[in-house]
Simulated scan of single mutants.
Amino acid sequence: MKNKKQLKIGELFSGPGGLALGAYLAAKKTQLFDYEHAWAVDNHEHTCETYIRNIKGATPDSVFCEDIRTFNMKNLRNASDKIDGFAFGFPCNDFSVVGEQKGMQGDFGPLYTYGLKVLRMFEPDFFVAENVSGLTSANQGEALKKILKDLEQAGPKYVLTPYLYKFEEYGVPQARHRLIIVGFKKSLGIKFKPPKQTHLKKFVSAKDAIEKTPIKKDAYNNEKTVQSDLVVKRLSYILPGQNAWNAAIPKAYQLNVKGAKLSQIYKRLEAEKPSYTITGSGGGGTHVYHWSENRALTNRERARLQTFPDNFEFMGSKESIRRQIGMAVPPDGAKVIFEAIFKSLHGIEYDHIKDDDIYIPGMKRK
């Protein structure tokens, strides 16, 4: 791969395009490859529309809006006879630390196996698999062990490097921790090294992300949420970093909730720190709240915390857009990883994490 070439990448569970945009930006920065979209599959209509609207080369013929469990995977061959790379953020519902954590026993846990089918069909040089940090402990750690073993043995066999990335350490203005598994075809003789953190000493704050470059009045997806008088009053008693449960709120404005009390309910951001994790679903009080104004963030503000550029237009209803933003991989985080992948393919050295520090919490070091 000494000469610059087109690098075709296919995706399952593509979301609105966070991984794809990250790969495109990495190719543009490193100038080692030209990014080429091959195909993408996702089961959410508005998400597919967003992907087609924003990702270079994506068309209604190359983006399949279908449930992978009933999708005819032969259609992928029709879209592209080969791919060089493969990315899949297999659904995380059953591995998330928020919820029941059903793991492999849930409806979503086994969906990673469709990624195995792609690896057998196309035998790409590399793949990137993304999931929540909760995967490391699902089913007492047995789920991750099985997934790693299956990925390692898939198709031509792969050399894996799983690593728990804390994206705020890479310049993303959000404490978002995700397990990323990078695999290289064994025959290539490449052992991937996670790129070294770039922002350990100075995180990007929520305020800088949202305000350093003002959002234009006519920016996409920037409609404000209308807050009720009750919510405005409740927020007025919540300080930055506090939530509905630990703030000194008069009884008249308190929530009457029994059972589990999620820490993100009506939680305000802290201006000088990265945001807490942006989520894609939830009822009242889960929309992420401004540090000084008594309101929820707009979707565009959430998108900035996820590092989507302002010219990235999300399609669909307000709640659908919120879902897409919350479920996406931050493009700037994906970009750092793809830069390291592209350099690895070319045998180019880069700053990386030491071997002794490449391990997954809860698992034995190799």
Rank of each mutant, 00 (worst) to 15 (best):
E349K: 12
A340E: 09
L239I: 14
F33Y: 15
K343V: 05
V172S: 02
G106R: 10
N256H: 09
E142T: 08
A340F: 05
P195R: 01
L239W: 05
A23F: 01
G109K: 06
A20S: 15
E339Q: 11
K233I: 01
I337C: 02
A334F: 13
M327V: 11
P240E: 05
Y24S: 10
E142I: 12
R234D: 11
Q197S: 15
A303P: 07
I68R: 12
A244M: 03
G284P: 12
I278Y: 05
I348G: 01
G141A: 04
E142Q: 02
I181F: 08
H199V: 05
L19K: 04
L76Q: 02
G171A: 08
G347Q: 01
K216I: 12
D84F: 00
K273Q: 06
S292V: 11
L200R: 04
V63F: 15
E339T: 08
G283E: 08
T113K: 11
G134A: 06
K102M: 09
L235W: 11
G280L: 14
G183H: 03
K196S: 09
I215F: 00
I325T: 04
P195L: 00
A175T: 09
Q324L: 14
I325E: 13
F108E: 13
A260S: 10
N243W: 07
T59C: 09
K186Q: 12
E45Y: 07
N311T: 07
M104K: 11
A129C: 09
Q242P: 05
H46F: 06
F64H: 09
F90K: 06
P60M: 04
I278L: 05
E339K: 10
S263F: 07
K149Q: 08
I249N: 01
E36P: 01
K267I: 10
G189Y: 15
A143E: 08
F342G: 07
K166H: 12
A209K: 12
K267Y: 13
I181D: 02
F342Y: 15
T50A: 02
Y220V: 13
I55P: 04
P60D: 04
I147Y: 01
T279G: 11
